[in-house]
């Protein structure tokens, strides 16, 4: 199912290279077209024109994992100041996503 965008964190990048994923992380650096977000590790992302990231905000990114494990952003949603998000719950969601993929995405064998 190409319509699913599995929720991942940095350690899963390699497993999902060339796939479209969903990452909820904290914005750490903004450098023009490029940014770094923290989601279980640093992930460098390439922004599109519509993405408006804010430092120290939580952001949800839908994007494609590239060869070098950077992520090309297709859409981003601001989730407000990072303190407002319980990242333990976010990590738990990523954990169950891959523990019980039958609920979350079509796993290719």
């Amino acid at each position: 199912m190409s319509e699913s965008t599995p929720r991942i964190t940095a350690p899963y990048l390699e497993q999902f290279s060339h796939q479209t994923v969903r990452i909820l992380g904290k914005v750490r650096q903004l450098r023009g077209e490029q940014a770094t977000i923290d989601a279980g590790g640093q992930i460098s992302v390439f922004l599109n024109r519509d993405s408006h990231l804010q430092l120290n905000h939580a952001v949800e990114i839908i994007g494609k994992v590239q060869n070098d494990l950077s992520v090309r952003v297709m859409a981003s949603t601001d989730f407000g100041p990072e303190g407002g998000i319980d990242f333990n719950a976010v990590d738990a969601v990523v954990d169950v996503t891959h523990r019980y993929p039958e609920m979350f995405y079509h796993k290719e064998q």
Binding site: A89, V90, Y100, M103
Partner: peptide, 18 residues
């Protein structure tokens, strides 16, 4: 209203699935 509801919901759905 609160983006934590997304995580809450997915975890709740998982509990029910299990």
């Amino acid at each position: 209203q609160d983006h934590n509801e997304i995580q809450y919901h997915l975890l709740e759905a998982t509990v029910v699935h299990l």
